[in-house]
Nucleic acid binder design. Sequence first.
DNA 1: AAAGTATATATGTTTATTCATATATGTAAA
DNA 2: TTTACATATATGAATAAACATATATACTTT
Lengths: 114, 114
Amino acid sequence: MNPLRFFKCLSDDTRLRMILLIVSEGELCVGELTTALSEIQPKISRHLSQLKKCGLLTDRRQGQWVFYGLNSELPDWCKQVIQQTCDENQDFLKENYKQLCELTNRPVRPGTCC
Amino acid sequence: MNPLRFFKCLSDDTRLRMILLIVSEGELCVGELTTALSEIQPKISRHLSQLKKCGLLTDRRQGQWVFYGLNSELPDWCKQVIQQTCDENQDFLKENYKQLCELTNRPVRPGTCC
DNA sequence: AAAGTATATATGTTTATTCATATATGTAAA
DNA sequence: TTTACATATATGAATAAACATATATACTTT
């Protein structure tokens, strides 16, 4: 992973929040991210596709929903950078968590239950 | 340190290389960075002043030279992100190290000798 | 010591370039 | 056909580059 390309992915408000939220939650679908960030859906989709193209995220369709998660094949140093940033900046995501919590009827994840 | 602001500092080729070189070498002056990156001096100075303003670097004038180093008061998570990136991306800086090595008559640092 | 000169660094201003946004529209699943 | 998501295009805003120039320290010469 080219470090410049990696940091460019993290240098946009929308992308940074999405990545940190996804790491915190494991996986999130487009609609959940749209709500959490209070943005319009095309904007979210566009940034997600960019992060996927750069290798930071992977996607998985499950019926009507597409879930995005952190790419497990990412180099360790990248994972650590993201994890540390996430751990030390929970307050940065406060409003996003709030929005996410207020969201009812969230799609059920197969791996998450039990 | 706001994470977005922090990553924006790292998301430019010139700034990223400068930061990593400075961390590797401890301190570097403007002229050394100009040579290492093969860029014009005003471009280097401008990015340095931006990194100083954002709190990533500190400067110290010693005679004719101004040495830049990593701000020791930076939050730990920021220091760790930079250090890990530096450790795992030495090849990214290969050409810059080469230019730096070819530079003769580098200014003597007071702390470096003995 | 004063004046002039060279070197190192910083900054103001204009011009390019990159990047993100918004709107409209397209595709896929239920 | 409704819900969920993706993409194309045009536009605008933020950012970086280049060039000229200013400042600050050191070095010379008289």
